[in-house]
Design a protein around this nucleic acid. Sequence first.
DNA 1: TAAAACAATAGACCATTGTCCACGGTTTGG
DNA 2: CCAAACCGTGGACAATGGTCTATTGTTTTA
Lengths: 114, 114
Amino acid sequence: MRIGELAQKSGFSRDTIRFYEQNGLITSTVEDSETNSYRNYKDDCLVWLEFFAGAREAGMTVADLRSIVVSTAESCDREVARAVIQRKIEELEERAEQIGNVVLFLENTLSGSD
Amino acid sequence: MRIGELAQKSGFSRDTIRFYEQNGLITSTVEDSETNSYRNYKDDCLVWLEFFAGAREAGMTVADLRSIVVSTAESCDREVARAVIQRKIEELEERAEQIGNVVLFLENTLSGSD
DNA sequence: TAAAACAATAGACCATTGTCCACGGTTTGG
DNA sequence: CCAAACCGTGGACAATGGTCTATTGTTTTA
């Protein structure tokens, strides 16, 4: 599919998709046979983008996402991928714990304001 | 206390503390009686900074923190403060949920890579 | 009392994460 | 066939969250 369709389906702007592609988060192909230079995106780009949306919300950076994408690439060692992802999971769990602490602090602030 | 002590105790750099102060996250006083223009920070600045450290980790922005600080100021209506903080708590809980989703996706990626 | 350590201010500078714009080429609908 | 809609590229611009430097003044300490 072309970028417009991918943008529409994923909810990201074309600019953001190009930005992500420039940063190695997704890849596309350009058919030599074409007279244009339009990029073609496969369905798995959409799957990744859907993941990215949640992951960014969850506080992962573009660099984090790139490390995950790279680690899951064909060429990559399964164990390496496993380690990278496991590390990210741990970071997220730490973050979730931190959120719990902050919520407690805020709830305490609320009850203390009585 | 002065900025150096606050920096040492809080773990933030002096620059960051000044940045936070410029952005209304903490306040200080300058004694007229002093020959210098050194700022004095009260103990509650340290409490706030400790909170900020966790809150930033949890994904809250400086603007978020300012809204909380402002809402808890003496001059502010208790109900307004309550509403602001309650809203932030909800945002954090949404974020925590999002993190849960991302972790699931990643765990799925791991098991799918077998 | 002199050097070292500390402080204030202002402004430059940096990475991150996009967005917007101008320009020129391509495709598509009517 | 023509206009509208689409695409690519490159570069400017912006907000966020700091960091670093230069300059000048103050305090501490040996």
